[in-house]
Amino acid sequence: MKSQFFIIASIIIITLIFFINPSPFKKDELISRSNNFEKEINYIAKNFDRYYIGDYVNKYIQYLQTLGYETEYICVSNVNISLPECSGNSINCCIYNISKIIKIENFSYCKKDIILYPNKNWTCFCYKISKDDVYTINFFCV
């Protein structure tokens, strides 16, 4: 009787772990969403006019919202990317590093302000995409 109880209990625990907590799966989904975001902004900067980046960012965030993701970002650019809040020449990503609940590996951009080299076209983003309890944070420049 006792051993049956233990076996049934372990079956229930295993089921709970694999079906109710799909965190590893959600994490990979998040990574592919953030790859998508970075690669397409890079594609726009290389092949089209940077002016379109703003429109793409707004549409992408809207699309993620319909899938249940939340997106926050800060950005800086020395060319017009049609996002008025992205003017200036320095950025500090620390606001996304406040939460100590999840340790972010290799996220070293918080140590100091990142200042853009003036004689080149730069657009930098610091962003956070989250869904429920998982999130991804990254910094990139194009």
Partner: peptide, 11 residues
């Protein structure tokens, strides 16, 4: 995948 466009910007 959410593409930004092919030859021109058209998401």
């Amino acid at each position: 995948y959410f593409y930004a466009g092919k030859e021109k910007y058209e998401p």
